[in-house]
């Protein structure tokens, strides 16, 4: 906590870093003082997920308004299929494609989001993963587009890739948004190990009377290091060599075992 406060003091002194991207609502000030505890997260062979801490301060002197923190992963294509019964067998219907959907999405607030922001704001500022999911193909006959969208969100939520925290941290559960004295807030998100390795963005919003007042966007880089990085780079850049190495390794393992277990 001490570290967070020190870093927070730095953020407040230096002013908010100007790293905001072009987003809907160009009239909204990008000056919410906020920061993250770690802008770099490294993935090594012992990686088992991590926690991302976003902290900041409500610039309103009287402490009015609500803070909403969203941690977004990269937007990637996704496919959802509905199961249908044909001749007694359950088969997949035609695939429905999304040109992009967030690979990770966590939204944190002190109270339910619908009490903080209007439905229009939630959609406009993409405070819900469904709002960022863009349909790219036709829905099979008799299908409902919103059902596919809802299914995508539900399935990703079960995988821990979409998360909602509408209250402060609970007993035994790490993660949630905590408000402290003087408008100070801290948000902790559990990033599961199955979340993709990519660039993330921590977006902080200040809502008052359902309207967005101020916000801030901070990039967080998650990257591989060490052996994980070497293997991944080899697989990506020299895939033929990687394949041959894997086969040679297989032959070596097979030969080794047969020599080791040879009857004297």
């Amino acid at each position: 906590m001490k570290r967070v406060l020190t870093a927070l003091a730095f953020v407040m002194l230096a002013g908010a870093p100007a790293s905001a991207q072009q987003q809907p609502g160009a009239d909204v000030a990008d000056d919410l003082p906020a920061g993250v505890a770690e802008e770099q997260i490294t993935v090594s062979s012992t990686y088992g997920g991590s926690f991302i801490t976003v902290f900041g301060v409500n610039p309103d002197r009287r402490g009015r308004g609500d803070i909403v923190v969203v941690l977004r992963g990269p937007n990637e294509p996704a496919t959802v299929l509905q199961k249908r019964r044909v001749f007694g067998l359950w088969v997949n219907d035609d695939p429905v494609r999304f040109s992009e959907a967030p690979a990770f999405f966590a939204v944190l607030s002190n109270r339910p989001l619908r009490d903080i922001a209007s439905p229009e704001s939630i959609w406009r500022y993409q405070l819900d993963p469904a709002a960022s999911a863009r349909l790219a193909s036709a829905i099979p006959a008799g299908g409902d587009p919103s059902a596919y969208r809802a299914a995508l969100v539900r399935l990703r939520r079960e995988q821990g890739l979409y998360q909602w925290y509408a209250r402060g941290p609970q007993e035994g559960v790490r993660g949630g948004l905590t408000a402290y004295q003087g408008g100070l807030f801290r948000a902790v998100v559990r990033l599961p190990a199955n979340a993709p390795i990519a660039q993330y963005h921590a977006d902080t919003y200040l809502f008052r009377d359902g309207r967005l007042i101020s916000r801030q966007r901070i990039p967080i880089m998650i990257s591989r290091i060490g052996v994980e990085r070497t293997i991944h780079d080899l697989a990506t850049n020299m895939s033929w060599l990687y394949g041959i190495v894997t086969v040679l390794l297989a032959l070596l393992a097979g030969w080794g075992a047969s020599v080791l277990f040879r009857r004297p």
Binding site: E76, P77, A78, T79, V80, L81, Q82, K83, N92, P95, R97, A147, Y148, A151, L152, R154, L155, R156
Partner: peptide
Amino acid sequence: AYVLGAGMW
């Protein structure tokens, strides 16, 4: 009733 497909397709 729904399943996620591989991302690319």
